[in-house]
Structure formats: C-alpha cells, structure tokens
Design a binder for these strands. Structure first.
Ligand SMILES: [Mn+2]
Ligand SMILES: [Mn+2]
Ligand SMILES: [Zn+2]
Ligand SMILES: [Zn+2]
Lengths: 144, 144
DNA sequence: TGTTCTATGCAATGGAAGTGCATTTTGGAA
DNA sequence: TTCCAAAATGCACTTCCATTGCATAGAACA
C-alpha cells in the first residue's frame, strides 16, 4: 500500500514524505471530498500549514482536485486514474448533501457541454448539485 | 424610478426603507453580480451589517439570488422578472472572468437537466464557468 | 399618544485562507 | 560517508469576510 503511494507520488513529481503519504491514505479511505479542517482533525499532531501546503502541492501536481461546493469551504478529492482535470473529459459533477453536509464526486457524470455567448472563453466549469444524497434519503425511509 | 422600486419591494413583502431603495438601485445599475463589500464601498455612510441583512432579506423574499462563483466571496444579483429561483426554469449559468474578476448572470443560458444516480434528489444546481469574458477578450485583441 | 415590531448601528466573534520566517529534513553531489 | 542546497515543516501572524448580540432609532398601527 504505502509502497504504491510512494511510487504514485514520485511519478507525479511529489516527494513522498511521511505526512504526504498519510494525507494521501486519508483521502483514499474517505469516499467524500474533504476540507482542510477535516484532514487537520484526522491527525492529532499536524500543522495546518503543512497540510495546506501539501494539499496545494497535490493540486498543482494533479493528484487532487479542489471542489467549490458552495459552502465557502474548499474541499479536496483524489483525481481519478489518468485524470488531467481537463474540461469536457475529466471534469465531473459534484453533489453536496444539505442533510449530512457531505460532498461527493460523481465521476461518472461528466459536465455537459456548455454553449457560451460570443466572446466568452471557458477555462473551467464547476457544476454542483445540492440536495439529499442516497444515504440520507434512505435513512428517511427507514425512520418513517 | 424610486416609486417603482418602492412598489416592487412592498409587493415582495419588504419595507422600502431609504437604504434598501439605494441598495436596489445600486444592484439595478450594476450589470454584474456584486459582493457585499462592493455595496459597502458604494456608499460612504453605510454599515456592513445593515447591508448584509438587507441583502439577506432581499434573498429570502426572492428579490436577489446569491451566487457562489468559486472565489469564496458571495455575490448577489437581482432576479429576473417573474423569477422564482426554481430549478430547471429560473436557474441560469454564471460566468466568472479570471481577468477582470467579474461575475455575470447569463440568464439566457438555463441550467441543463442533470441526471443523478438513484437515491439522490436535487434541490438546487450551481453552474459556474470560469474563463475570459467578452470585454476582456476584446481588449486582448485591441492590445496586440 | 403610546405600544410594538422592525430596521439600523456598533462591537465583537469565528472560521478559514494564506504568508513570512526560522528550523528541520531530505536527496544528491562530492 | 559527509556535506550542502533545496525542499518541507512548524509556529506565529495577518487578512478577509460572514455572521451574531445587543442597544438604539424609527416606522406602523391601534
Ligand atoms: Mn470530484
Ligand atoms: Mn444570476
Ligand atoms: Zn447526505
Ligand atoms: Zn473579464
């Protein structure tokens, strides 16, 4: 496991330090997008700045992508294999649940092509749907 | 003008105070989405809290809609006539220019219908395209 | 006029992003 | 193996914006 991650990080041009490996593992085991604060809370002995800069490096090297889910808090999630964060091919829908407050990548749901008025050039597209996630809606059923 | 605004506010259940009318006028003359700080700077003698609560009231009464353009700063813009901020009919694309840093409503560009996995329910959709706006790209041309 | 609800202003809080700088760690050259 | 330069880390701070509590002023209404 750790071996693989080390290799993966190296391949992306990121030095596999102890903390970075831990962060990567954490992102891997979470199946939702995480905030910096989440990572901070996951490790008792961690400095926010280090985490901040590690994640930033990950982002620059294409290891994670940043998600703006509308909460005002930046979230991060691992990129898919072979992802280049390219518009039309890699960018996908994100879903933010207003009940559990979790944000997930719906990697199967790519962003539809958007027509823009003349003169406008798209560099990036952010599509976030807010509502109730599957877990929360099935809990609702269970309750009643 | 002021008369119309007063009526409009009343019709939406908002008392047309002096400040609120000013804010409304300001939003009306700006053709871009504005941040609270923008409004604050537009009026020398204004209290941020009053502006904050006024805009919040506007939002609750369906007079403005909030825009999360990914900058982390909340923006606001007047709703169209007859807008109920309803998904599929009223929600539209927003464009954020990375050059001039302005965010505009592209009210003609409604949000395409999004298919979600089973169990997910959509309550709101946020679609933001980032890139270069028409003004900025035409300036580019002029320069070279 | 007096009462009550609403709007406003001021002060303060809180959360998160981001930066400067000193120190430690690391990887590679010698 | 030893040493050095570059990279990573940790701590202290700053900044920016959203948001709230509470006291006061203002408007509507009986
Ligand atoms: Mn994602
Ligand atoms: Mn809009
Ligand atoms: Zn949920
Ligand atoms: Zn522009």
């Amino acid at each position: 496991m750790t071996q693989k991650i080390e290799k993966l990080l190296k391949d992306q041009g990121v030095r596999p330090t102890a903390m970075r490996i831990l962060i990567y593992k954490y992102l891997l085991e979470k199946n939702v997008a995480v905030a910096l604060t989440d990572i901070e809370n996951a490790f008792a002995k961690s400095d926010r700045t280090t985490l901040y800069r590690s994640v930033k490096t990950f982002e620059e090297k294409g290891i994670v992508h940043q998600i703006e889910d509308g909460t005002g808090i930046k979230k991060y999630a691992l990129c898919e294999d072979g992802c280049n964060c390219e518009i039309d091919t890699d960018l996908h829908l994100h879903f933010h649940c207003s009940t559990c407050n979790e944000t997930v990548c719906l990697t199967e749901h790519k962003i539809p092509h958007i027509n823009l008025p003349t003169g406008y050039t798209a560099e990036n597209v952010n599509l976030v749907v807010k509502g109730i996630c599957d877990k929360c809606s099935s809990q609702q059923k269970t309750i009643r």
